[in-house]
Design a binder for these strands. Structure first.
Lengths: 247, 247
DNA sequence: AAAGTTAGTTGATTTGCGTCAAGGATATAT
DNA sequence: ATATATCCTTGACGCAAATCAACTAACTTT
């Protein structure tokens, strides 16, 4: 009874069933990256029984800002944009969640941001109450969840530096290097950076307009620091870009 | 053995002794605001015995970015600026810590930001190792610490909106309203907003220059939304300002 | 009291990025 | 094939905030 999925994209249900069976942790690609890594096999089993395996088609909203937060998610594949809207429509993307990320760290009564699947996303859904109760009996998981929250806080503070004190070019480069580093933990790739989000999303993440983002991509491509591919970018001069991001 | 206080301001030690005796929790003004509120009296006593009561004179650096983080702090009075520096000297203040705030949430090996006392600051210092061990035996405290980290994360995400998508006037107003709300939890005041930080600090928090901050203060004062006092501002039209901050 | 020092304000000018506008590329639908 | 939609790019122009510069006020030092 989540209020989510009121208008599922029916056509995609065949390839993206929004509920799957349990017991899939053994071959879950997110296990070692996610909060689950804190658990012993029998504990993982117990948590698995509380989970509902979900699949969201591209562009589906997973949850919305200010709604009651009845559930939390563990992302097992795909990418999600997390964003806050101002009353006049201005949007700030506060982060992108990838494989292994946990949504629901804030544990408040209501969501503080909205979340949309960028491509197809799979996730383990838990009742917030059940997950919270599980935490009470598994302090190791709480420690890991706290480590996740602390890490997210550090990331958010680094993003404040990017938003407050960096130029447009530095913002785009720092974004690409940061995303490359996150992908590398998931798929190992060190020069190919998939960009499942649009230029508008990148702009709303960096405090820029879509035009400025586009111009910076063009500028970096013209100076051969990267090449723009159909699904992202390939870094040609990663060291040079890292230097700009570290500036 | 913290590496901190190598050059204490000797003149101020008489009025700001940097170590005090324990057993002061009973009349600690921060107790109900801080992580300590999660503890039973006997637990509070046990934690108190691990603490070293510190006092930092105005302008003293409490710890620096990238240094090993051997200790954590519970702020019991005063205000602290938390900031990150870029190699070229650009500065981003990531937050101001007030009475009841906890420094050391990230629990990483090294500090991710620097911290300076703005005025005189008192704090309970704990060895990070000892505090971490205490957490292992007091899951209620870990829950509260996690709640603190989650709350800080929400604050940081709201700051991203301010930095990325708000105008200079909105930034200054949102800052004042946010600070007013924090002071009100500490001292109850709802229209007087003490500003222990400089205009430069405010600019470095909001991604603005000192001149722009000054101009916005002047503009708000000219339209009688506030008056500038020697130690801060007094809000004359809080409702109007809240509306701007909520925009 | 004179000379620094630090914090803040105000005005003139510049500029980086936003806004406005047009056009191109790719994908899905008809 | 043609139409429609979405995403992206590029150019011309404008403006909000940065930069540069001068000045005031409040303290501290000598």
């Amino acid at each position: 009874m989540t209020g989510i999925h009121e208008t599922p994209a029916l056509a995609s249900l065949a390839i993206c069933p929004n509920s799957r069976s349990g017991g899939e942790c053994d071959h879950c690609q997110a296990r070692k990256l996610s909060v689950c890594a804190a658990l012993e096999p029998h504990e993982l089993n117990a948590l698995d029984r509380l989970s509902r395996k979900m699949c969201f088609p591209a562009r589906e909203t997973m949850f919305e800002q200010d709604e009651p937060s009845d559930v939390v998610y563990n992302i097992t594949s795909g990418a999600v944009r997390l964003y806050k809207l101002l009353p006049d429509g201005r949007r700030q993307i506060v982060g992108f969640a990838l494989t292994g990320d946990f949504l629901g760290l804030s544990m408040g009564e209501r969501n503080v941001f909205s979340a949309d699947a960028l491509g197809e996303v799979t996730a383990c859904q838990f009742s917030r109450k059940q997950f919270s109760d599980f935490l009470d009996t598994h302090p190791h998981l709480l420690r890991r969840l706290h480590a996740f929250a602390s890490h997210e806080l550090s990331i958010a503070q680094e993003q404040m530096v990017i938003l407050g004190r960096r130029t447009a070019e530095e913002k785009v480069v720092a974004f690409l290097i940061g995303l490359r580093n996150r992908w590398s933990r998931i798929n190992g790739s060190t020069v190919n950076v998939p960009l499942p989000m649009t230029r508008q999303d990148i702009g709303d993440f960096l405090g820029l307009t879509i035009e400025t983002v586009s111009r910076m991509f063009t500028k970096l491509a013209k100076q051969k620091s990267l090449v723009i591919t159909p699904d992202g970018v390939r870094l040609l001069e990663p060291a040079r870009l890292e230097a700009i991001a570290a500036t």
